[in-house]
């Protein structure tokens, strides 16, 4: 049987988890906005799907290519996993990954608190 104290103890923890989750989402959005501002882009609407083929990889700026190559190789990755490979900060990778999503090269999927980035090779069209 669960005591009343335990239930009460869990509630603030749950609220804190929620706050943290929302702060992370907010942080990601801000990183995207900063990144877009840096590159002089005003719109934040994702571009139509753009295949991440090797010629596209070749024409990308170096900093984005490095990130995109890791996702290509891993198939599916979080910003943390990409950062481990590139040895750049997680927040930096998060910004680059989100920029690649906006450019239409990657897809993003949330699972709980984690955001996964992947190359959508299966969609038709």
């Amino acid at each position: 049987m669960v005591s009343k104290q335990e239930v009460l103890g869990k509630k603030p923890l749950h609220i804190l988890e929620k706050i943290r989750e929302n702060l992370e989402k907010l942080n990601e959005k801000m990183e995207v906005m900063i990144e877009l501002q840096k590159h002089g882009r005003k719109d934040i609407q994702p571009l139509p799907e753009a295949p991440l083929d090797v010629m596209t990889l070749l024409s990308m700026p170096d900093h984005l290519r490095k990130t995109a190559m890791i996702v290509c190789r891993l198939g599916r990755a979080t910003a943390e996993e990409v950062a481990q490979q590139t040895r750049r900060a997680r927040a930096v990778e998060s910004a680059y990954l989100n920029q690649l999503v906006i450019m239409g090269h990657l897809k993003k999927e949330r699972k709980g608190r984690k955001a996964y980035f992947y190359v959508d090779r299966e969609s038709q069209g």
Partner: peptide, 13 residues
């Protein structure tokens, strides 16, 4: 096309 080449890269990887 580019989409096919992207899938081909996935299959090579």
């Amino acid at each position: 096309d580019r989409k096919w080449e992207m899938r081909a890269l996935g299959r090579l990887l």
